[in-house]
Simulated assay, not measured.
Amino acid sequence: MQSNTIYIVLGVVFAIYIAIRITNKGKSSARKSRKFMGDYERKTKKED
């Protein structure tokens, strides 16, 4: 059992890493879509 402990720990760390990557990818793609600002136009500044 002692020799398998390192593999179990590495497996858990890898699983956590994969879960974080998947959630960040989902948030990133949602942020890039910006559907709610699709027809937004920046107001021009009036210069005196």
Rank of each mutant, 00 (worst) to 15 (best):
residue 20 I to R: 04
residue 45 K to G: 02
residue 36 F to N: 14
residue 38 G to S: 14
residue 18 I to W: 02
residue 21 R to H: 04
residue 12 V to E: 01
residue 16 I to Y: 00
residue 48 D to S: 08
residue 11 G to S: 12
residue 13 V to W: 00
residue 36 F to S: 11
residue 17 Y to R: 08
residue 19 A to V: 01
residue 43 K to N: 03
residue 11 G to V: 05
residue 32 K to Y: 00
residue 33 S to E: 06
residue 2 Q to P: 03
residue 4 N to S: 10
residue 22 I to P: 00
residue 30 A to Q: 15
residue 6 I to Y: 05
residue 47 E to K: 05
residue 28 S to C: 04
residue 12 V to A: 00
residue 34 R to S: 12
residue 22 I to L: 13
residue 40 Y to V: 00
residue 24 N to Y: 10
residue 42 R to A: 05
residue 23 T to Q: 14
residue 38 G to T: 15
residue 39 D to L: 08
residue 14 F to Q: 09
residue 2 Q to M: 10
residue 44 T to A: 09
residue 8 I to N: 15
residue 35 K to N: 00
residue 14 F to C: 11
residue 42 R to D: 14
residue 20 I to C: 01
residue 26 G to M: 15
residue 22 I to W: 11
residue 4 N to M: 09
residue 9 V to T: 07
residue 41 E to V: 08
residue 8 I to S: 14
residue 7 Y to T: 04
residue 17 Y to V: 11
residue 45 K to I: 04
residue 5 T to P: 04
residue 27 K to N: 11
residue 40 Y to A: 03
residue 24 N to W: 09
residue 29 S to N: 08
residue 33 S to Q: 10
residue 46 K to A: 06
residue 47 E to D: 14
residue 25 K to N: 15
residue 18 I to R: 00
residue 39 D to E: 10
residue 13 V to E: 01
residue 33 S to F: 09
residue 9 V to Q: 08
residue 26 G to W: 08
residue 35 K to P: 00
residue 10 L to K: 03
residue 46 K to N: 13
residue 22 I to Q: 13
residue 4 N to R: 07
residue 48 D to C: 09
residue 45 K to F: 10
residue 32 K to R: 04
residue 22 I to R: 05
residue 10 L to I: 07
residue 35 K to H: 04
residue 22 I to C: 10
residue 8 I to K: 05
residue 29 S to Q: 09
residue 4 N to A: 04
residue 27 K to Y: 05
residue 1 M to I: 15
residue 8 I to F: 01
residue 5 T to D: 08
residue 35 K to V: 01
residue 29 S to E: 10
residue 30 A to K: 11
residue 23 T to M: 12
residue 48 D to P: 03
residue 32 K to N: 05
residue 8 I to Q: 07
residue 46 K to S: 09
residue 16 I to C: 00
residue 44 T to W: 02
residue 30 A to R: 14
residue 39 D to H: 14
residue 34 R to W: 06
residue 40 Y to K: 01
residue 30 A to E: 12
residue 13 V to Q: 07
residue 45 K to C: 07
residue 25 K to S: 09
residue 5 T to I: 09
residue 42 R to E: 13
residue 41 E to L: 07
residue 19 A to H: 02
residue 36 F to R: 12
residue 4 N to I: 12
residue 23 T to N: 13
residue 38 G to E: 13
residue 11 G to T: 06
residue 5 T to H: 11
residue 10 L to C: 12
residue 33 S to H: 13
residue 7 Y to H: 08
residue 22 I to M: 13
residue 39 D to W: 11
residue 12 V to L: 02
residue 3 S to I: 13
residue 28 S to W: 06
residue 14 F to P: 01
residue 8 I to L: 06
residue 46 K to D: 12
residue 17 Y to C: 12
residue 15 A to E: 01
residue 44 T to L: 13
residue 26 G to L: 12
residue 35 K to E: 07
residue 22 I to Y: 10
residue 24 N to C: 05
residue 4 N to K: 05
residue 16 I to L: 03
residue 4 N to Q: 01
residue 30 A to F: 05
residue 14 F to Y: 07
residue 18 I to C: 00
residue 41 E to P: 03
residue 43 K to G: 03
residue 29 S to L: 15
residue 26 G to I: 13
residue 37 M to D: 15
residue 39 D to G: 06
residue 7 Y to G: 08
residue 8 I to C: 05
